[in-house]
């Protein structure tokens, strides 16, 4: 009577093998190798860089955290120098720890912010997503230190009902300014 166990086991095994093969094939077809060449990365991002640091040329990728897309949160993930300043990418967690906001910050040679752009943001629509507004992000231009309550550095008007997301962006810009200062020190 041991025979009755064979058929169910075999059928389930075959189904698992077929599904696994289908998944392996799909993975192969949809796999995109990550871009690792620094020159290529800089070329792909040139438009975004020019937006946050106008009038700059000859970008040099100083450092990029490996596998940053999924891992780093609350951390500087990419540092780029240019002719008239530097550009720093920061991951900062807003409402969702697993989905940090990716903030691109341009810092001029004098240490003041020249532009802020959110490269990736998936906060709550109608709330945190409102931080991704060019007019709100323009508040940062020209400053060197920021806070929502205005006690340290320039005061930033937070987006109503999106305190966490606003705070995440403010923290990211502060981190970027510090990272830029380090980059300038290294260069000297």
């Amino acid at each position: 009577m041991k025979f009755k166990y064979v058929k169910p086991t075999l059928v389930l095994l075959i189904i698992c093998v077929v599904i696994s093969a289908a998944l392996a094939a799909t993975y192969r077809l949809t796999y995109v190798p990550p871009v690792t060449d620094p020159a290529q990365i800089v070329a792909l991002m040139a438009d975004d860089y020019a937006e946050v640091l106008p009038g700059s040329t000859d970008y040099v990728l100083v450092e990029r955290t490996e596998g940053y897309e999924k891992l780093a949160r609350g951390a500087v993930v990419e540092r780029v120098t240019a002719s008239n300043g530097c550009i720093v990418t920061v991951h900062s967690s807003g409402q969702y720890d697993s989905d940090p906001i990716r903030v691109l910050v341009g810092v001029g040679a004098d240490g003041a912010v020249t532009g802020v752009k959110l490269l990736k943001i998936s906060e709550t629509p109608g709330m945190g997503m409102k931080t991704n507004n060019p007019r709100w992000l323009a508040q940062f231009v020209g400053g060197t230190s920021f806070s929502l309550d205005g006690r340290t550095g320039a005061g930033i008007d937070g987006v109503t009902s999106a305190t966490k997301s606003s705070r995440a962006v403010v923290n990211a810009v502060n981190m970027a300014v510090e990272a830029a200062a380090e980059l300038r020190k290294e260069a000297n």
């Binding site: 058929k7 169910p8 059928v11 389930l12 189904i15 698992c16 599904i19 289908a22 998944l23 799909t26």
Partner: peptide, 21 residues
């Protein structure tokens, strides 16, 4: 083809396969 004893594991494997695709 799917025996009654293992139908739920079989179903969920098939479903999970399509979702992953």
């Amino acid at each position: 083809v799917i025996p009654k004893e293992v139908r739920l594991p079989a179903f969920i494997t098939i479903i999970a396969g399509f979702v992953t695709i």
